[in-house]
Amino acid sequence: MIVITLTKVPKSLRGDLTKWYQEIQTGVYVGNVSARIRDSLWDRIMKNIGRGEATMVYNSNNELGYQFRTTRKDREVVDFDGIPLMMHLAEAKAPIKHGFSNAAKFHRAKVMTQRASNKSASIGKSTFVALDLETTGLDATEDEIMSIGAVKRDEAGQLTEFDQLIQIDQAIPSNITNLTGLTAERLADEGIELSDGLQKLRDFVGSSSVIGYNLHFDELFLVNGFKKLEQPQLENKMVDLMPLVKKDNPFLDNYRLQTVLEDYEIEDEDPHRALPDAKATFVLATKLIENGVLKI
C-alpha cells in the first residue's frame, strides 16, 4: 500500500497521479504499485511539484513496516536504529531548487542570453494598449461598464493614459462599490455617456493591439456595448495575457490578477480600479515580452 499527500501542486501533476493512484480525498492518493513505478512517480513529483509539498508513505521491511519521504521544508526524515522518524525542524530548510544539473544551467543561460538579446528590440518595436474595465457585475448582457482604464505605448516608447468614468442606468451592488470605490453619485457627476466613452476609447486605441488580463471578460462587455449602441466593433488584435502567464509560470496557486502581479513582483497601486489595473497589466505585458513569452 502506498499513500501520497499533495498540497498546492499544479493540477497537471494531480491529474498525472490519478493514472496510477486513486484520489480518495482532495490531495490524498492511495495505490499499490511496484517499487520501480513508485520511485519513478516520486521522481516525477519532485520534477513537477512547483511550489507545493508532497509526502509519501509506503510498505517497507523495517520494524515499523513502513517508510516515508517528504518535501516539507519544516520536516526531515531521519533513521533511528533502522526506524524512520519524522523530525520537526526548528528552522525550515531553504527551498530545494530542482533542475540544477549542468544541462539545466546551460539551458537557462542560453534562454537568458536570448532574452537579453531580444529585450531592447522587442520593447522598442512593441506598440500596444493595456486595457481594463470595471463593471457592475459579471454578466456582460445584463451588467454595465462603469469605468475604462488604458495605457498606450507608441513606437517611440511614449506612454499615454486613458481614464474615463461612465454613467450607468442601474444601481451599483454594494459589494461592487466596496470593491471598486465607485458610487452611482460619482458616476453621475464625473462620468460621460457610454457612447462617448467608447468613441474616446476607439480614438485612443487607434490601430494598436489591445492586451488585457482575462481580456475575454472585458471584450464581451465592449462587444455588447458597441452592439447596444449600434456602433462597429473594435477590429484590433486582442491578446489575453492569462494563458501566456499559465504557460510561463505553471506552478502558481491560482491565476487571479493580484496573485500573478505578486509573483512577478509588480505593484498595483490601487487594485480593482480600471487605470491602476491597466498600468499593472501594462508592466506585466512588458515583463512577458522581456521573457520572450509575449510577442506583439
Rank of each mutant, 00 (worst) to 15 (best):
I266C: 10
D263R: 14
N224W: 07
D277K: 00
N236S: 09
K279L: 09
K279R: 12
E269I: 11
R273P: 05
E290A: 13
H216E: 15
E269Q: 14
I289P: 04
A278P: 00
N249W: 08
N236K: 06
N224F: 11
E235K: 13
G225P: 04
L288R: 08
P232L: 12
H272S: 10
K287H: 00
K287Y: 03
L294V: 03
T281Y: 02
P276E: 11
Q231P: 00
K279Y: 05
V293Q: 09
D270K: 13
I289R: 01
N254M: 04
Q233A: 14
L229R: 08
Q233S: 14
G225E: 04
E219C: 11
A285K: 03
T281A: 13
L284A: 07
E269R: 12
L284S: 06
P243S: 14
L252Y: 00
V260A: 10
R256G: 13
L252S: 02
V223Q: 15
Q233P: 00
D270P: 00
E230I: 01
K227M: 10
V239R: 09
N291Q: 15
D253S: 12
T259N: 04
A274H: 03
L234T: 05
L284M: 06
L222V: 02
D270F: 12
L257Q: 06
E269Y: 09
V223H: 14
K279E: 15
E269P: 08
P250M: 06
Q258M: 13
K246R: 09
V245A: 05
L257W: 01
E267D: 10
E230V: 01
F282P: 00
L284G: 03
Y255G: 06
K279H: 09
L284C: 07
L244M: 11
N249H: 12
I289Q: 08
Q233R: 14
H272E: 05
G225D: 11
N236W: 03
F251Y: 12
D270H: 13
K279T: 11
L229N: 09
L222P: 03
L261S: 07
Q258T: 09
Q258S: 14
V245H: 03
A285N: 05
H272N: 00
T286Y: 10
K227C: 10
V293R: 00
A280W: 01
T259W: 00
E290I: 11
L222S: 08
P276T: 12
F282C: 07
Y255N: 04
T281H: 03
T286K: 12
Y264T: 03
H216R: 15
D268S: 14
K287D: 00
E267M: 10
D218K: 07
E219D: 15
N254E: 02
T281G: 08
K237T: 12
L222Y: 06
T281E: 02
K237H: 11
K246W: 02
H272I: 05
K228N: 13
T281M: 07
L244H: 06
A274F: 02
D253F: 09
M242I: 04
E265F: 08
